[in-house]
Structures are given as C-alpha cells and as structure tokens.
Nucleic acid binder design. Structure first.
Lengths: 107, 107
DNA sequence: CAGACATATTGATGTCTGTCAATATCTAGG
DNA sequence: CCTAGATATTGACAGACATCAATATGTCTG
C-alpha cells in the first residue's frame, strides 16, 4: 500500500484495494460524507485557534443539540476530530493527518 | 471558495462551507464511501489501460451482476467514472479531476 | 429477424442512518 | 450537597441504501 512515494499530489489508487482496506477507508469516508459533518469540520478547521467549543456549533448548522453531539461523536470516533474537555465545555479540533489520508488516496 | 492557491497539498477547508456546498460535496463523497465502490475505482484506476470492461468487475468484488451495475451507475452519476459503450460491452474509466476535487478539499 | 450474450432496470427486503424529544451524566460554584 | 448549565445517551421513527432474483433492454452475429 506504500509503494507510492511521489511526494505530493499523485493518485494513491495504484493498486486494487483489498476488501479489508476498502472497508477501513469507507468507514473513514462515511464520517465526512454528510453535509452537516462537513460543515462542522469546515467551521472548526477555519476557526482562528483551530478549535471550537461544542456550544458554538449548534447554531451554525441549525440542528438540535443531541444531533450535533451525535455528529461530533461520529467524527471523533473516526479520528477526524479531537476532543478536549475544558471545564464544562468540550472543545474540538481537526486532526489534519486523518484528512491527509483521504487527500493522499485521491490526490 | 477559490482563495486557496497554494498549489499542492494545502487544506481546502479554510472557510466554513455553506449548506449548499456541503450538500454537493457530501453527495460526491457518498459515492466513494462504500467499500465495493472503492474497490471498483481502485481496480479501474490501477488497470494498465485505465479502463476496464464491466464484465471484468463482477468477479473481483464477488457480488451479483445487478449489484455491480448499480454501483457503477452511482459512480458514473457522481462523475467519478466515465462510461463508454463499445459493442456489447461497457468500459469504465476514472475521472481524475473529480477525485482531485476531493483531494484538494482535504489536502 | 432470431438467438445469444452483456448490461440495465424493477421490486422486494433487511439494515443502516439522521433526526428529535426526553432523559441522563458531567462539571463548576455557592 | 445542591443547583445550574453543558454535553451525552436513549428510544423512536422516517428515509436512505446495499443486495439479490427476476426481468427487461440493448447489441452483435448468423
């Protein structure tokens, strides 16, 4: 899976994927294949500090608190977001490496 | 959406996505968020000629012909595959630009 | 045009998923 | 400890989706 070392911007699909690899990748991709989750990631990624409080994520997407909490959990479990408890609040940041995994696959 | 011109390997999520953009991107991502479809794309992308007959895609994924046909349709409608009828056979190739769209978003 | 073969469509079914209301859990302050 | 506020979990439900068997459509060849 790692015979593709041409640095940057080259397609990672140079060999047929095994079903196991395809399953793992599909799981990662499913996490970002939802409009609300894409919005959440983009909001966090584009924030000045690179981190956003969960309390500031409900309004922008216009959904209920439990629903946003659910999406944040899905993204965190996929390794795309990282969660840090800070007092009463939960702060989320983006794991760039995890996104790069996707970029390199399709780059 | 295009104020990000740092050539290669830079994250495209520099600004919050609108719901419309997020919807469009999610639709594209959903197309590749399935293990079977990932396998199909990887098989076609890694083939010598860059194109594969549909008749050669059923066996590798181990599913029925209608199911494979359905997956190919989903990928084609998402613009990820291109279809060319050649006699009785249908040949599929990968649209690299469409995959690059994903790569640039997460790169 | 008739038969053979490749591909697509239809219909049915079980599973997964996004959403919310209600409720529970956690954390800080008094 | 008790209250208030933030976040997570549970249960329910509607819609989406992957899959297959059966069938239809398309395309070449004789």
């Amino acid at each position: 899976m790692a015979d593709q070392l041409t640095a940057c911007c080259s397609n990672g699909l140079t060999t047929p994927l095994s079903r196991e690899d395809a399953d793992a990748l599909a799981q990662l991709l499913k996490a970002v294949s939802d409009p609300v989750r894409l919005q959440l990631v983009s909001i966090i990624a584009s924030s000045p500090n690179g981190e956003v409080c969960a309390c500031d994520l409900t309004a922008p997407v216009g959904l209920s608190q439990p629903t946003v909490s659910h999406h944040l959990k899905v993204l965190t479990q996929a390794g795309i977001l990282e969660r840090e408890q800070r007092g009463t609040w939960a702060w989320f940041s983006v794991n760039g490496d995890r996104l790069s995994t996707i970029a390199q696959l399709f780059g």
